[in-house]
């Protein structure tokens, strides 16, 4: 089920979502060996950052809540990692975050020099005081950060959006106009909160956290549906995709590729080959191709 995405041919439409297992070349290679078409590195920031104290990631059965808090060695402290990734035999997206346009620009410019296949800017993280989401909920700041980053990088730019935007389709269109090559939607939903009633404390140390997994899939599908109507650039659709049927649904909403994250919890690292295989089976059963079903839910 190989598929073209911008300038790259991928072995299938599954994408490892940012923040999941993206910490080293070795583990990305294993994810690739387990059937993933395109792997996203853990978000890279301007400074060394530890992230929040634990608990940071909790399974709720219907999905997860997390506030890991954007840990990163800092973009200037990853030479060993880049060196290792230079000799990779799989495609990667480097995810980047910042707390100002200038930070996004300088991190993205540097990361671009390391030749990832794509750069994704995370303007949608709900789990930090000052990074990310604040840019992605507003049309002007989305436009400014996208056009600033686009000018300084030499690989295609993906913009990761938040479902908290009052009108995500409008933000997506703004990003396209500012030069984005693709949209990735959605980041985690929320923030939400879980309180332990015996200790009377929020369970996450950051108190609030983003929701992911099956419980957010309908929101993700709706967002991708809305974005597909508004833009002509390709969309990586993610949010709760656990099975091939979930992936087919996301493609029908308008996604070109399907991101997988929380499902690693429920189906293991093998989830990528399982989902890709199940998509193939579904398409074969229905005598359809991926192209046939892309955006199919928009047909009147």
């Amino acid at each position: 089920m190989s598929i073209r995405f911008l300038h790259k041919i991928l072995k299938n439409p599954t994408v490892l979502a940012s923040g999941i297992l993206g910490n080293s070349k070795d583990i990305l290679e294993r994810v690739h060996e387990n059937g993933c078409g395109l792997m996203t590195l853990k978000s890279i920031g301007p400074e060394p950052r530890d992230g929040h104290k634990n608990p940071t990631v909790i399974d709720l059965g219907c999905g997860m809540i997390n506030a890991v808090g954007l840990p990163s060695p800092g973009y200037l402290n990853m030479e060993n990692e880049w060196e290792a990734l230079e000799n990779r035999n799989f495609p990667i997206i480097a995810s980047v975050y910042g707390s100002s346009i200038d930070e996004y620009r300088k991190v993205a410019e540097y990361v671009s020099s390391k030749k990832p296949d794509f750069i994704e800017i995370n303007i949608s993280c709900p789990n930090s005081e000052k990074h990310g989401m604040i840019f992605g909920i507003n049309r002007e700041s989305s436009r400014d950060v996208v056009s600033a980053v686009k000018k300084v990088i030499s690989v295609p730019l993906i913009v990761k959006l938040t479902p908290q935007a009052p009108d995500i389709a409008d933000i997506a269109r703004t990003c396209e106009d500012a030069g984005a090559d693709a949209i990735c939607a959605i980041n985690t939903l929320g923030p939400g909160m879980v309180i332990d009633i015996e200790s009377k404390r929020p369970v996450l140390s950051f108190k609030k956290g983003g929701l992911s997994g099956p419980m957010i899939k309908p929101v993700a599908v709706r967002c991708v549906f809305d974005i597909y109507k508004a833009v002509s650039i390709p969309i990586i659709g993610l949010g709760g995709i656990t099975t091939g049927e979930d992936a087919v649904e996301m493609v029908m909403a308008g996604a070109s590729l399907v991101g997988i994250g929380t499902a690693v919890r429920y189906r293991g690292i093998e989830v990528f080959q399982k989902v890709a295989g199940e998509m193939d089976d579904w398409l074969a059963d229905h005598a359809l191709s991926l192209t046939d079903i892309k955006g199919a839910a928009h047909n009147e």
């Binding site: 999941i20 297992l21 583990i27 634990n54 997860m64 890991v68």
Partner: peptide, 17 residues
């Protein structure tokens, strides 16, 4: 470690979680 169930990647050692 963070999550404890093989998702966040904090505890990777080579190809193992």
């Amino acid at each position: 470690m963070r999550c404890g169930f093989g998702v966040c990647g904090a505890c990777v050692c080579g190809k193992q979680v």
